[in-house]
Design a protein around this nucleic acid. Structure first.
Lengths: 112, 112
DNA sequence: CCGTATCCCTTAAGATACTG
DNA sequence: CAGTATCTTAAGGGATACGG
């Protein structure tokens, strides 16, 4: 299953996936939201080290790519809730495998 | 299952995983090698856009993290073969899920 | 064949302060 | 509460040329 360029089709598919998920934060945000709908501050508290700026920026990108949904409630002070879309939900399998691998990696390499 | 910092344990495990896999190339290299042992040039040909410098650098990091193995054969010209370790092999599940998700993502969002 | 060595540029991302 | 704006630094990564 090679393309004309001599590169496996699977490489191309994963390259597209990685482009949508690149950076240190997107997958962590997706994980946080897959554990339940959350508000800005709640996500921020669950992800160690993320700044408001990065969270804000990444949320926008994820929304553009239709992985999450942003819902604004007309209250004062403003209430905004983030949730994952069906397409975003399909990422959960990736996250699960990554979770298992991360635990194994700690034992094998990091030594925690 | 929260840590003292109020952050889910799964977030920490995935954070560790992402640290070992960060960047645009590592997962693609792992994929290429999971399809079979390969030499430097062969990997390079399978991954569109990667430069020798980046490939060389990432291969070292992956070797340090015990995800791949580098074997040198004493020939002229030199022959070097890369293969995945058992720990690297455990990444294949992640790659499979990422592959499926990438295909879906193309249909849903990119429109290929 | 299998890389290294430079040089350079863009982007990610942290810190801090501020707004509707 | 839910973000923006601005500034700055570190790092990722590309182009090119060269070495064992």
């Amino acid at each position: 299953m090679l393309t004309r360029e001599g590169c496996p089709e699977s490489v191309l598919a994963i390259k597209d996936a990685l482009e949508a998920l690149e950076g240190r934060w997107k997958l962590l945000i997706m994980l946080s939201l897959s554990l339940g709908n959350k508000r800005f501050k709640q996500i921020s508290k669950e992800i160690p080290g993320i700044t408001d700026k990065m969270l804000s920026k990444e949320l926008k990108t994820l929304e553009t790519n239709k992985l999450i949904k942003r819902t604004v409630y007309d209250t004062f002070p403003p209430t905004v809730e983030y949730s994952i879309t069906p397409h975003g939900k399909s990422l959960e399998k990736v996250l699960e495998e990554l979770y298992h691998w991360g635990q194994e990696h700690r034992k094998q390499v990091i030594g925690k």
